[in-house]
Amino acid sequence: MTRLVDLWRVRVPALVMVGLMVFGLPQPRSGGDARAGGPIGPSAVEQQGLTLINARCTLCHSSDLITQQRLDRPTWTKVVDKMMTWGAPVGPDERKFLLDYLSASYGPLNSPEAPSK
């Protein structure tokens, strides 16, 4: 058991940290208000969504598991609720925001070209 505690203490934080540094932080999917000629960047909602993902989801897995999905709102709801049941620290307001954000940014309508099937 002592060994297990040591492992939690040493390995998990280190790997989570490195994972976040290297892979974990999702990048905006598209540019910001290019019409205004300003610098390319995420919209406020998108930035908020990415921040929430970084804060609440990437404890357990990298964000690419999320950003590769193209799901409708009922399916996103099942996924988010399952994660909350499993301990994802998402509050009620955050849940609603996450569902709005994921359904809009990673919904079926935004699906890229279907693969070769």
Partner: peptide
């Protein structure tokens, strides 16, 4: 000195 729990909390806080 940083516990796992503390690490995760701080990580969650960015």
């Amino acid at each position: 000195s940083l516990s796992r729990r503390e690490f995760l909390i701080r990580l969650a806080g960015g």
